[in-house]
Design a protein around this nucleic acid. Sequence first.
RNA 1: GGUGGCGUAGCCAAGUGGUAAGGCCAGGGCCUGCAAAGCUCUUAUUCGUCGGUUCGAUUCCGACCGCCACCUCCA
Length: 475
Amino acid sequence: MGMKIYNSLSRRLEDFEPLTPEQVTIYSCGPTVYDYIHIGNARTALVTDIIRRYLVYKGYNVKLVQNLTDIDDKIIKRAGELDISTEQLAHQNGEAFFEDSQRLGIQPADVHPKATEHIREMIDLIQILIDKGAAYVIDGSVYYRVNAFASYGKLSNRKPEDLLAGARVEIDERKEDPRDFDMWKAAKPGEPSWDSPWGKGRPGWHIECSAMAMKHLGETIDIHAGGEDLRFPHHENEIAQSELATGVPFARYWMHVAFLKIDGQRMGKSEKNFILLRDALDHYPTEVIRHFLISAHYRHPLDYNQESLTKSEGALRRLSNCLDALKQYDTEVGLNERTDSPLQHAVEKMKTQFTQAMDTDFNTAQALGTIFTLVGEVNKVLSSRHEVENSVFAEAYQALSETCQVLGIYNTEAQNSNGNIEAKLEPLVELLLEFRQDARNRKDWETSDKIRDRLIELNIEIKDTREGTTWKIVS
RNA sequence: GGUGGCGUAGCCAAGUGGUAAGGCCAGGGCCUGCAAAGCUCUUAUUCGUCGGUUCGAUUCCGACCGCCACCUCCA
């Protein structure tokens, strides 16, 4: 069954076919490292992460490139305020970005190119555009001549006159056309700069993505992703630069992630109402934040607020309770007993529907629905005490943990590390449970409840079930 | 002014030309010494409003109302 992706360029759902079968190249616009990343940046990064995980799940060989913009106006300004070098600022925030991403369970890209390490490539690209008559030099700066690219505006669906009518930007009188944008900025005194054929300066923002994407992924990439605000002008300009230089399509599928709002307001660095990813991670577990961020489709706005996060916490609890209950059957897999139970059908159905949901433009909200439907089925069987082959529970566990790992909402490594601690604590906890059981047998509820209460204070939760008392570490 | 999007139960959120996934919260019941977890029942005859097309529309078309994003650095 084929995948479909909504392509911002055609504004339609399209069948997904990578340029090279089995291989997918993805370029994701990364952060400008002048500050920590906020939860909105994280949404885009997370969507990219899940796209990649799902493509790998489907059997594709994926190469993901995500850049770091480590030189621009904001970095120069912030470094000045902090009285440190731009290199130092960019380095610090770059490291922090990797740390925060990792905490959110985002796997590192295959390549994380930095703008300042690709000056040569950018200069070469600019030179090509000058040679082709698509750029001109004024006072050491190089501008892209928008009129040279006939299909300028195709991504953002804008006609030339539209771009001028509502322009709120101050017009630089030196430019031939107000829409022209700089690819190389002549250095101002005291600013970091690099040598170029046009004098000392630094690259413009758009040229870096064109140059780095082409260097690491080739002239045509499969998927280019970013926040919806990058559609214009950033991605429009990337297309103009790249396609005029190479004569081939720059990206086959353009994906734009909708904004994260906060308490109903647009979250943005200029609005100063953003929440840092690291602060969110201090308050909620990784899986809860991921669940929240994928609870709506990526092309729909999502509102960050405490209530929504609390809901995700509840949903995650339901999921992990089920997974915990199933986990003991995991070793039963491989017996390959063909049973014909309703639960087995539910497992198969869930796998199919999960794939269908994700195949349709990565509909994570729907995919979550299929997972939780199976959770309900499993719980029903678990509580009904009907005889079910353990291998079916094992299959259910496999299916759930596999799909949850595609979404990154079930961390088996954390489970294992908890498991190690549990193994060490087991004799001790069992001893306490023995005392508690004695108390219960005496109907000494005061003592038995005290043991339970004290244990929960130590993050050990116990439950009295029909099969006896169970315990686990909770956080 | 231009471009695009959204409006589904108390809340969040999928979805379809044939009669509404899932989650959270709430209430009743089962289980239980209690608790937790789980199960179970209840919660939109209805998908912003008004028209049109259709045997039939929440889903297609039109108008209107409301909200939002981009057009400027921002994921």
